[in-house]
Structure formats: structure tokens, C-alpha cells
């Protein structure tokens, strides 16, 4: 409609420039770097695929992949069940329901790192509230040993993440819940369905798209987890909670093996893209759902 089409270039130019310099260049560089021994200071040397080969002999890398996948598999259903319970409570137009929704959603706005620090304090043995409650109830003597075992560390990090993200997932699920016409629930009730049957056979199937969306958001988010393990568990105990991003960070910015970190980054990118691809296939297959 505007006759000088070339003018369009001027409008998209700033966005393109930023994307080329600060996204495409680093993206190309990450591949190039992964084929080098690339210390931050000193001589850069071509080493072919040696970085990729080194991964196979890197126990912490293998451990970090296993841990990241375990974390994704543990946190996703947990967030889901909690968020679904919240959404069912917050659905409807009872009094104060809007206020409840707002308050449950509130932790979403807090940064992951800030929330992690908040939980470090609450989990602390001397000054934390959890230990104090445990002592008051006679459950623990002095401390809650959340860093003693990998399982406990995982539970500590997961409880923070659920607290922070359940409200947002509730909002997503509410969008799905509210798109179900109430006549369907009415009809099921007339046919003699109880509350559970109604939920199982009407609500869940009709929310399939929303559920998948929330599912994959949670999975992608967990694959990129860093803050909670850097701050709450500090990767411990025995490097047991080092996520993939954490291991990239350690290699690049603690031991300055940037070439190796670049190779690790590409593996992470491949994992994330595979997850997105799976999401795309699932969405396309059951478009009718």
C-alpha cells in the first residue's frame, strides 16, 4: 500500500542490525569456537572435533545431562498437578476468587534468582523458617539437611520453582478451562457423571491443547535451568545438581575453556530444538483436539 517499498527496509533496519550483530554473529561464533581450543587470553588453536570427543570422557557433563533431564521429568508433572488444582479452585465466579487468583499469581513476577535467595534464607538451618517449624514440631533436632543428599537438594530447588511458577501455569490452564462451554458439563451431569468423571472425561480431553502448551513451556524452561542450582544448591552435593547451563557457565567463566563451553552450548541447543520439534509434531498431529 505504501508505494516506496524500500522504505520498509529503513523501518526494519534497527531490529535487523541488532539481531545480526548480537544474535547471528554469536550464533555463528559458537559453532566456530567449538572447533578450537579457545582460552580467553592466549593463543587460539584449531583442534577439530576434539571438544566433542572430550565430552564423552567428561563425567560431569554426562552427569549434567542426566540431572537436567531428571529435573525436567520431576518438576513438570509437579507444577502441573499443583497448577491444575489451583486452576480448578480459581475457576468460577465465587466471591473473592479474583483476589485469590491475583495473590497466587504474584510470585510469577519475582525473579528466579531473587526467589532462590529468598529460599536459601528460608531453608537455612540456623535462621530459616522451615528448620524453626521443624524444631517446634519436634521433627528435626537442629537443621533440615537439604544439602545432604541429591534428592533433598532436588526437593529444595523444586519446591521453590513450584512456588514461583504454579500461579503462571494456573493462569494458562484457566484460559483453557474457561474455553469449555458450560453446557458440556451440564450435559455430563444430566447423564449422571460425578465431579471426578466430569473432570476426567470432559475437562481434561477438551484442555488437551492448553495442557500440551503448559507441558512444553515447563520442559523447555527446565532444560535451561541455572539460577536455582547456582544459588540454592550451588551444584552440590558432589556436583549432583549441576545442570547443563551450569556446566557451560563453569567451563566458560570459571575455568575459561570457552571452546569446550561452546561445544557444550551446541549440544544444549540441539536438545532444546529437539524438544521444540517434538512439541511441533505433537501439536500438528492432533490439531483436532
Amino acid at each position: 500500500m505504501y508505494r516506496q517499498g524500500w522504505l520498509g527496509w529503513l523501518f526494519v533496519a534497527p531490529a535487523l542490525l541488532l539481531t545480526c550483530v548480537f544474535f547471528l554473529w554469536p550464533l555463528a561464533l559458537v559453532g566456530w569456537m567449538s572447533l578450537h581450543n579457545w582460552p580467553l587470553i592466549g593463543r587460539i588453536r584449531w583442534i577439530g572435533i576434539a571438544n566433542y570427543r572430550a565430552m564423552l570422557n567428561d563425567p560431569i557433563f554426562l552427569q549434567s545431562v542426566r540431572f537436567t533431564l531428571t529435573y525436567a521429568a520431576a518438576i513438570t508433572p509437579t507444577i502441573f498437578v499443583v497448577a491444575m488444582a489451583l486452576a480448578l479452585l480459581a475457576n468460577g465466579d465465587r466471591r473473592f476468587v479474583g483476589l485469590f487468583r491475583t495473590l497466587w499469581f504474584m510470585p510469577t513476577a519475582i525473579g528466579l534468582s531473587t526467589a532462590s535467595v529468598l529460599w536459601v534464607w528460608m531453608l537455612n538451618g540456623q535462621v530459616g523458617i522451615f528448620a524453626a517449624i521443624g524444631r517446634a514440631l519436634g521433627l528435626v533436632e537442629t537443621d533440615i539437611p537439604y544439602l545432604d543428599s541429591g534428592t533433598n537438594a532436588m526437593i529444595a530447588a523444586c519446591s521453590m520453582v513450584v512456588w514461583k511458577t504454579a500461579g503462571f501455569n494456573m493462569v494458562l490452564l484457566l484460559v483453557g478451562l474457561q474455553s469449555i462451554p458450560s453446557e458440556l458439563h451440564e450435559a455430563a451431569r444430566i447423564d449422571g457423571a460425578g465431579a471426578w468423571q466430569n473432570f476426567r472425561h470432559v475437562t481434561l480431553p477438551l484442555m488437551r491443547r492448553t495442557l500440551k502448551l503448559a507441558l512444553f513451556l515447563s520442559i523447555t524452561g527446565s532444560l535451561l535451568a541455572f539460577d536455582q542450582f547456582y544459588i540454592i544448591t550451588r551444584g552440590g552435593p558432589q556436583n549432583g545438581t549441576i545442570s547443563m547451563v551450569y556446566w557451560i557457565y563453569n567451563n566458560a567463566f570459571s575455568s575459561f575453556r570457552t571452546g569446550y563451553a561452546a561445544a557444550l552450548s551446541l549440544v544444549l541447543l540441539a536438545v532444546v530444538l529437539l524438544a521444540s520439534l517434538a512439541q511441533f509434531m505433537l501439536f500438528r498431529d492432533r490439531e483436532d483436539a
Binding site: F22, F23, W25, P26, L27, L29, V30, M33, L224, F226, V245, I248, Y249, A252, F253, T258, A261, A262, S265, L266, L268, L269, V272
Partner: peptide, 9 residues
């Protein structure tokens, strides 16, 4: 997160 290392450079 995947391009942070080269971004630094």
C-alpha cells in the same frame, strides 16, 4: 543461554 559464551567475546 546457548550463545552467552560467544556473546561475551
Amino acid at each position: 543461554q546457548t550463545v552467552l559464551t560467544p556473546l561475551f567475546i
